[in-house]
């Protein structure tokens, strides 16, 4: 024989397990890198790589960014849809600037490469928003 209170506590714990496991299923860690090349003041190559992390990332959580998902769970698609916002955000995180120029017999050529080195991001998918938190 079980008391009514005991049954309630069991059902509550089951509910909480289901709730937290569903939250865990919607969160993930991703590795993102971004790079573009500017040659003689013209943009030539822009690449964004998004991959799911194969092992757990370590690091302190930085300022989060929230992007609209439109009930999608494909991070690359979400980022491309909100590319301006995301690119502004990763510029703020810190970009590596590599610039080389050469002047040969008074003729000038320059190459600038901006890179976001592969960074781990924790992503929480909600109904309409994805919360992206860099781990550093």
């Amino acid at each position: 024989m079980r008391s009514r209170n005991g049954n309630r506590s069991i059902s509550l714990s089951i509910c909480s397990i289901i709730f937290f496991s569903s939250l865990a299923l919607n969160a993930g860690e991703y590795l993102i890198s971004y790079r573009y090349v500017v040659k003689d003041a013209i943009l030539y190559n822009e690449s964004l790589s998004v991959a799911k992390a194969m092992k757990k990332c370590d690091g302190i959580q930085q300022t989060a960014l929230e992007l609209e998902t439109n009930s999608s769970s494909d991070l690359k698609k979400i980022i491309i849809e909100n590319s301006d916002e995301f690119i502004d955000y990763i510029h703020k995180l810190g970009m590596q600037v590599k610039h080389n120029d050469i002047t040969t017999n008074a003729q000038y050529k320059s190459t600038t490469i901006l890179t976001l080195k592969t960074t781990c991001f924790k992503v929480d998918f909600n109904d309409n928003f994805a919360k992206i938190i860099p781990l550093k």
Partner: peptide, 16 residues
Amino acid sequence: KQSTIRTCVDAVIKNA
């Protein structure tokens, strides 16, 4: 015969 000037910069910039 040839005059060449090379310059390079390498840095990480945050919060610009």
